[in-house]
Amino acid sequence: MKKAIQVSTEELAFQLAPSETLLEGLERTGHQVEYQCRSGYCGSCRVTLHSGSVHYETTPLAHLNKNEILPCCCRPLEPIEVSIGLKVKAKKSA
């Protein structure tokens, strides 16, 4: 059984539910994350991974530099730390 995994961003930390993608988790918690295809070929959502590691069910088509991951289709294997901030609006209400 998959467990929730701790995700730390530039501004907060949250538990990623087993049923959601990292992209969905980042959206749920009000992060400024870009997206388009949500299936690994456009690369819009790419973010930098500072620590931890992720796994892909199938290798995504989008170009990734070392340390970059695609939240739409990766699965964290352990607690991870990514470089992404909150939306301005979310910041105000927080």
Binding site: Q36, C37, Y41, C42, G43, S44, L61, A62, H63, N65
Partner: peptide
Amino acid sequence: IARDEALHLTGTQHIIN
């Protein structure tokens, strides 16, 4: 069209990188 363009963009990004 946007779906195709997103793929083309990935293509040129790969070539450039």
